[in-house]
Amino acid sequence: MSETIAARLLTLHDRLARAALDCARDPRAVTLLAVSKTYDHNAVRNIARLGHREFGENYLQEALDKQRALADLDLVWHFIGPIQRNKTRRVAENFSWAHCVDRLCIAERLSEQRPADAPPLNVCLEVNVSGEPSKGGVPADAAIALAKQVSALPRLRLRGLMAIPAPTRDRACQRAAFARVRRLFEALKAHGLPVDTLSMGMSGDFEAAIAEGATIVRIGTAIFGPRFYPELAAHR
């Protein structure tokens, strides 16, 4: 096992705990989701040997290949990439979480295609909090209506919101973007929706996300090291 990966994971847990304690939060209220896209199944196995169980994947075929290679392990798989109509069945059948639901038609297909003998699929609505035209996600002013529709679908459990704000190194700007997501999350609860999850924050901004209430932070390079992108067209 790579000692570097073990050291990175330990350092990251320390940073996560400090970030939570700095804002009077319990570190146990924040789940570290290891984003393993582009890393091979051996890298995932190394992290799992350290006791980590929650892994996030963006590329569907790559994720399914890893799941087969790691079928002997008790892991929780999150799909955190965009979900097109031709992906819904395999996401519904092979993952515990889907983080990027942003259209009712996608939620309906996930609901219809979730196996009846499986637990409900945990879903988060992706919100385009920065209004970037190049990004997916439901506009903030349409999120409450969509959340109400999704929450009524069978075999799905609406857990909360997911967001990827425009990247910036300015801590105040990071917090302001995450605060907008938190306020929307609080509005969902005010409308009676039993949401409990804010999936936001990555390697470069997760401390700001935790300060604004993140319950899942999605971390890749800070655990696994530099990411290399081979030709992935066949895996998307």
Rank of each mutant, 00 (worst) to 15 (best):
M1E: 09
E3F: 05
T4Y: 09
T4H: 15
A7G: 05
A7P: 03
R8I: 01
T11L: 12
T11N: 15
H13W: 08
H13G: 03
D14S: 14
D14G: 11
L16D: 06
A17P: 03
R18Y: 00
A20P: 08
A20W: 08
D22T: 09
A24G: 11
A24L: 10
D26Y: 08
P27L: 02
P27I: 03
T31V: 14
L32C: 13
L33A: 12
A34V: 05
Y39E: 02
D40M: 06
A43Y: 03
R49M: 11
G51C: 11
E54C: 15
E54S: 15
F55P: 07
N58Y: 12
L64A: 08
L64F: 05
L64K: 06
K66Q: 11
L70Q: 10
D72E: 15
L75F: 08
W77I: 09
W77S: 10
H78I: 12
H78Y: 14
H78L: 12
F79W: 13
I80T: 13
G81L: 09
P82V: 11
P82I: 09
I83H: 01
R85Q: 10
R89E: 03
R89M: 05
R89N: 05
R90A: 06
V91I: 15
E93A: 11
N94L: 01
N94T: 06
F95M: 08
S96E: 14
A98P: 06
V101E: 05
D102T: 11
L104E: 04
C105M: 07
R109D: 12
L110G: 07
E112H: 13
Q113K: 13
A116I: 13
D117Q: 14
A118C: 14
P119G: 08
L121Y: 10
L121C: 12
N128T: 11
P133Y: 13
P133S: 10
S134N: 14
K135R: 15
P139E: 11
A142M: 12
A142P: 07
A142Y: 10
I144F: 07
A145Q: 14
Q149N: 12
V150L: 10
P154Q: 09
P154K: 07
L161S: 02
I164R: 04
I164L: 15
R171Y: 09
R171G: 07
C173L: 14
Q174M: 04
A176C: 06
A176E: 11
A179K: 08
R182D: 04
R183M: 10
E186I: 03
A190I: 03
A190Q: 12
G192W: 00
G192T: 00
L193R: 01
L193M: 02
D196F: 02
D196K: 02
L198I: 07
S199T: 03
S203W: 00
D205E: 05
D205I: 00
A209E: 00
A209W: 00
A211M: 03
A211H: 01
A211K: 00
E212V: 04
V217P: 01
R218H: 12
I219Q: 02
I223A: 01
I223N: 00
G225P: 01
G225N: 02
P226W: 03
P226I: 02
F228N: 13
Y229G: 06
P230G: 15
E231K: 14
L232Q: 13
L232T: 13
A233S: 14
A234Q: 13
H235F: 13
